[in-house]
Simulated assay, not measured.
Amino acid sequence: MALRPPRDAGPGEVRIVGGVWKRSKLPVPHSPGLRPTPDRVRETLFNWLGQDLSGWRVLDAFAGSGALGFEAASRGAARIVLLERDAQLAAALRGHLKRLDKDGTVPMTIENADALAWMRREAAGSFDLVFLDPPFAQDLFLAALTAAAPLLAENGLIYLESPGPVAVPEALGLSAWKEGRAGAVHYRLLRRGG
């Protein structure tokens, strides 16, 4: 049987699965390597985290479609920072925020920035939760974990999405808490300090 080439579906959309923006759709522009976190993986992740993130400080370091950061905002996070290197994708994220946050009260910042460089400059202990879903083809997993670990408050969490398990150096002070797999996506939550 011949293998079919990957289908280029062009622009698509992701759906927010919980919180005040539940069922809202986020259009996703076509961009090479962009691979939004699947709905069922986000449902599992937010079942692990809890549905109410009130008071949480959240960083979505490789925002892409924005699905993870907007899920956190939908669940009441107190501070949400989305980082996206691609200017077109960052502009799309700003458009989503403007459409969903009609009264301008959601504490979300969207920056067109290199995630690794940005994280290396940010103050230690600034976040309770960091989402890391770097482009799979660029093999940034260890570099991203190394840059993100100091940003966590005590007992803070890192969500890491990758094509397979990533060895986490003991020196980072992170321990595995939960993990799962869905198709070609391996995902796990790591906790700082325990």
Rank of each mutant, 00 (worst) to 15 (best):
F131P: 01
E154K: 15
V58R: 06
Q88N: 05
E179G: 12
L49H: 14
F70A: 05
I16H: 10
K98A: 13
M108D: 00
L151V: 05
T105W: 06
A73C: 13
K102R: 15
R94S: 12
A167C: 03
L174K: 15
K22V: 06
S24T: 00
A124R: 14
E122M: 09
G104R: 05
A92E: 08
A73I: 00
D133I: 07
R188D: 00
E179C: 04
L68I: 01
R188Q: 11
G69R: 01
A73D: 02
R191Q: 14
A171C: 00
R42M: 10
H186K: 02
W177L: 15
A147E: 06
D133M: 09
L97D: 02
R40H: 07
A92V: 11
R57C: 08
Y187R: 11
F131E: 02
F136W: 14
L142K: 07
E122R: 13
L3I: 07
E170F: 02
F70E: 09
F70T: 01
A91Q: 13
L83Y: 03
L26R: 08
R85T: 09
E13P: 01
G95T: 04
L189M: 07
G69V: 02
H186F: 13
K22D: 04
R75Y: 12
G95D: 06
I158K: 08
Y159F: 13
A144N: 07
L132T: 04
W21S: 04
K22I: 06
L68H: 05
L116Q: 05
R181T: 09
E84L: 14
E84A: 14
L172Y: 10
P38G: 09
S162I: 11
S31N: 06
A87E: 11
L97G: 00
A78R: 15
G66Q: 10
L132K: 09
R35F: 08
L3Y: 09
L151I: 05
V81S: 13
R75K: 09
G183Q: 04
G156F: 13
Q138W: 09
R57D: 04
D39V: 10
E43F: 11
A153R: 14
L89D: 02
A124F: 03
S162L: 02
